[in-house]
Design a binder for these strands. Structure first.
Lengths: 201, 201
DNA sequence: AGCCAATTCTTACAGCATGTCAAAAATGAA
DNA sequence: TTCATTTTTGACATGCTGTAAGAATTGGCT
């Protein structure tokens, strides 16, 4: 029985200019859609130094482009998380490293904070929500088992809550209500409270 | 010097059928855009039993319609909060009532959980974010002054965090990961932890 | 260098949603 | 009944998405 649902097509060998175009398009989409989520395909193509049809040659639809963008972002995110050693550091440290990776990620991918207009990832399923929360969940569960975090709340919920809290904090920065530094501090303190780590002192 | 920026135009007397149309349109927009935020003006008009041009007769643009929708929602929200007696009940009770009002509001206005596609309120400024958080902030500040809540985090941040947390919990329900009942419990417990209310026992 | 296939560009087209306009038809209020 | 308001009908311009075909360019390979 073959996997008929989402079989990964054999990644055919592309020519160098094609790879260059794809890179330029994804990068332009990251920047342009990050600033203006309702930008047109023409805008993205222009920013990539390419024609609109070239974009369609690699991404069959606008949605497909955004999906690819989110998948690329998820890959970067995962790579950063892999480097952070979340499974070996003490839970509280690992939590701090997770948040650090998140801040860097959000600075590079403001698109995910701009859920307006066409060009935003569907909230339901995307590469990010499939792959990032489980990492944090595992980390939190480890902390709960070790007694560093409280265990009265399910780790899965805490993971989503912490990630959401960081996005809220980032939105506060984007709205100019607090500085980046303040947002990081508020987010960290709040996360500790949520997870029940070292209540005071 | 007259207020030239956002002077409220004198609400002229409309005919009964006009008021009926406006109501039908806003209601249809609430339902249709709540289910499918990318629905067309035609769809909204049809659901309201009205022609597309009639919609434009009352709302000059799609954005204007959404803004009016959010403003109407904010009015309802505020009315519910006014009825809840947030300023007189004990802080913890008042906090619970605030969240209750939020759950009812989110059930009636799922649009605000669907920040995708055109038809979502701009994250920056809308009637909701202007008027709801201050209410919660005042309530939290009162709880901090009374010693019911911890005071190490600013009330303004806690207010936004609590509201955001409830939206995250609602999104979990919409995603089918938890039931409504579970989400409410998780949100309440997390909110208490965030605000530092009765840590345990 | 020269060939070939892949890639890009140009031009063109169809479809759909938004927004605007004008005139006819219907309707509420007096 | 009369009259202004409102709704409807039909039409139009615009912008973005997505598709298509042929010409021009370019990278890889011998």
């Amino acid at each position: 029985m073959i996997d008929s649902s989402e079989a990964a097509p054999p990644p055919r060998r592309r020519r160098s200019d094609a790879r260059r175009s794809i890179d330029a398009i994804l990068n332009a989409a990251r920047v342009v859609l990050g600033e203006r989520p309702d930008a047109s395909m023409e805008d993205v193509a222009a920013a990539a130094g390419v024609t609109r049809q070239t974009v369609y040659a690699h991404f069959p639809s606008r949605d497909a482009l955004v999906v690819a963008l989110v998948e690329a972002a998820a890959s970067e995110y995962l790579a950063a998380l892999d480097t952070a050693g979340l499974d070996t550091a003490p839970p509280a440290d690992a939590l701090a490293r997770f948040l650090d990776a998140g801040w860097q990620f959000l600075r590079r991918h403001p698109l995910l904070l701009n859920p307006s207009a066409p060009g935003a990832p569907r909230p339901g399923r995307n590469a990010l929500s499939d792959v990032v929360p489980p990492r944090l969940e595992r980390l939190i569960r480890r902390g709960q088992d070790a007694g560093d975090f409280g265990a009265s709340l399910p780790a899965a919920w805490l993971a989503d809550a912490v990630i959401g809290l960081q996005q809220i904090a980032a939105a506060q920065v984007a709205a100019g209500r607090v500085t980046t530094r303040e947002a990081e501090a508020l987010c960290w303190e709040s996360t500790l409270r949520l997870c029940g780590g070292e209540a005071h002192r």
